[in-house]
Design a protein around this nucleic acid. Structure first.
Length: 560
RNA sequence: CGGGGUGUAGCACAGAGGUAGUGCGCUCGGUUCGGGACCGAGAGGUCGUAGGUUCAAAUCCUAUCACCCCGACCA
């Protein structure tokens, strides 16, 4: 590809307000262009990277025994309604209507359509197992697109769905896919780890996330040096078994806090450590109010609380419900005198003489001590883990790292096959729903992750396997006939030999071309200038190591 | 959906009631040319959009839209 005939923008001349490194470099190196919030065009350089990634995914899916299909981006809402997920899709869903008034969903995910498709095509256990995948654009009306290409409204996903006759079969497929994912991400040059994850709204029994550690991910992973590894959403911690210190005070005392509702406001105003405050949150648990207590510097993990209490539904109470449950408006709840069940995090056992809400408008209490002034219904691990918490196995401490999710695999079970209808007859002639697994990869995120993990101050250092080109030919002086002749001969020769070559044939100064080449990050640079040409030599530079070598033109190919 | 911010040339920004500006990029001419050159001459904008105040609005007011950031949310 000739640089001058390609849509590569002027690389010095690109917005520099981007947050994530991958976003900034993707813009500056001419891979992408923003169209609107969370929607990007891929320019030739970026698109070639996507194609490389897609090719690797195809090869590995094939090895894992999956078959490629292509499902429509528009799904009849009827199918979604059957799964029960349509109503709850909420913000995520982009719906359209046709002229007849029928509603369509612009596919945020494809469990429903694939299950419908498979359901009408399988009859017998002999038709299983089945593993189908596609690589397709997904649309999600993300509330907040972020970090450039890392979270977008429109993105390319490889999604695979397995259907099995029994649990054992699902385990086999799940394992195969897990191995395929390991190979894919390794081939793409990524360092990653696999963590147990929350199954979230998808339901199902088991799921694992493939996480890439980088400073601009949205997710946090908790790990211990003894091998504990889990997403922060579900990470547990060891019981610190705290004993409550003896209170220094006699009894709780009320004080005025006009219009001070948040932990921040009170800790600032009265110089109290947030860790010495009891944050009291009111939830509606299966329709009944409960209180959850954590220290002021912690956050309640609703997922953990829900599990601990075996609840179906848990949501934050609204202002009206809080007033009813505590007798005070939002911001003044506290455990003392509360009539509803109170669940305290273990941390609360470790503080005496704490500050908390008084259940009266504009009032808080100080000198509140657990056990003496209130008795929780139960204590447990109900907050998000923090750096330095002890690991749940009691061995070592937890460390949190920021990371980006690039793949997710689920054992779904029969949720969709039952509701949408994908049944088969087993050996005994019994009608059974197929057992399903689903497996997703964010293709664009691999591109972002690769940049996050492979760059330096000058630009991108593409891993060989997904670099947009194998090498870049740079002419030092595009007006020198001999240089141009040698360069374009070489370009044609290498291209004919199957090498992917970018030919920087612009009439720019050498410095500009060198800097652009380093920014774009193609692994090998072939530098052609009259000085070396006089000796019949050209220079090869390795982008990653910076090493250069002078070689004879004739022997160039053997050096690439 | 809540809180904050920004919309002026392709990009980054300045202008805070009275010829529409600067830097980079772009075009042309010349000198240069192995790590982001220099000189000279140009082209390019109904100042996001709509309404209002005013003799006069990029500037003040109102509404609206877009984008960014922080939260809420999130396969």
């Amino acid at each position: 590809m000739r640089w001058s005939k390609t849509l590569i923008p002027s690389l010095r001349n690109v917005p520099k307000d981007a947050e994530a490194i991958s976003h900034q470099l993707a813009l500056r190196a001419g891979l992408i262009r923003q169209l609107s919030s969370g929607v990007y065009s891929y320019l030739p350089l970026g698109f070639r990277v996507l194609l490389k990634i897609i090719q690797i995914i195809r090869e590995e899916m094939n090895r894992a025994g999956a078959c490629e299909v292509l499902l429509p981006a528009l799904h009849p809402a009827e199918i979604w309604k059957k799964s029960g997920r349509y109503e709850t899709l909420g913000e995520d869903k982009i719906a359209l209507k046709n002229r007849a008034g029928h509603e369509f969903v612009l596919g945020p995910t494809h469990e429903e359509v694939i299950t419908d498709l498979v359901g009408t095509n399988i009859k017998s256990f002999r038709d299983l197992p089945l593993n189908l995948y596609q690589i397709q654009t997904k649309f999600r009306d993300e509330a907040r697109p972020r970090f450039g290409v890392i979270r977008t409204k429109e993105f390319i996903m490889k999604d695979a769905y397995s259907f099995d006759a029994d649990e054992k079969g699902l385990d086999v497929n799940y394992q195969k896919m897990s191995e395929a994912y390991h190979r894919i991400f390794t081939r793409c040059g990524l360092k990653f780890q696999v963590v147990n994850a929350d199954t979230g709204m998808m339901g199902g029994k088991m799921s694992q996330e493939f996480m890439v550690i980088c400073p601009y991910g949205e997710d946090r992973v908790a790990s211990s040096e003894h091998g504990y590894l889990a997403s922060q959403d579900i990470a547990m911690r060891g019981n610190p078994s705290l004993t409550t210190p003896a209170p220094k005070s006699g009894k709780p005392e009320m004080f005025d806090t006009p219009n001070l509702r948040t932990i921040d406001e009170i800790s600032h105003r009265y110089k109290i450590q947030p860790s010495h405050m009891i944050k009291t949150l009111i939830y509606m648990a299966d329709g009944k109010p409960i209180a959850a207590l954590v220290t002021g510097d912690s956050e309640v993990n609703e997922g953990k609380l829900r599990k601990l209490l075996s609840l179906k539904e848990l949501r934050q109470a609204d202002g009206h419900e809080i007033l009813e449950a505590t007798g005070a408006p939002v911001g003044f709840a506290g455990p003392v005198g509360l009539k509803i069940p109170v669940y305290a995090d273990w941390d609360i056992l470790g503080i005496a003489d704490a500050v908390t809400g008084a259940n009266q408008k504009d009032k808080h209490l100080k000198n509140v001590t657990i056990g003496r002034d209130f008795k929780p219904t139960a204590t447990g691990d109900i907050r998000f883990v923090k750096d330095g918490d002890s690991a749940p196995d009691g061995k070592g401490k937890l460390v949190l790292t920021t990371s980006m999710e690039i793949g997710h695999i689920f054992k779904l079970g029969t949720r969709y096959t039952e509701s949408i209808g994908a049944f088969f007859l087993d050996e005994k002639g019994e009608r059974k729903p197929a057992i399903m697994g689903c497996y997703g990869i964010g293709v664009n995120r691999i591109l972002a992750a690769a940049i996050e993990q492979h760059h330096d101050i000058k630009g991108i250092q593409w891993p060989e396997a997904i670099a947009p080109f194998h090498c870049e030919i740079i002419t030092i002086n595009q007006t020198d006939e001999k240089v141009v002749k040698v360069a374009s001969d070489l370009y044609h020769e290498l291209t004919a030999a199957g090498r992917e070559v970018l030919f920087d044939d612009r009439d720019e100064r050498a410095g500009v071309k060198f800097n652009d080449a380093d920014l774009v990050g193609i692994p090998k640079q072939i530098i052609i200038g009259e000085r070396n040409l006089a000796q019949g030599k050209v220079e090869i530079k390795n982008r990653r190591t910076g090493e250069t070598q002078l070689v004879d033109i004739a022997s160039l190919k053997s050096h690439l």
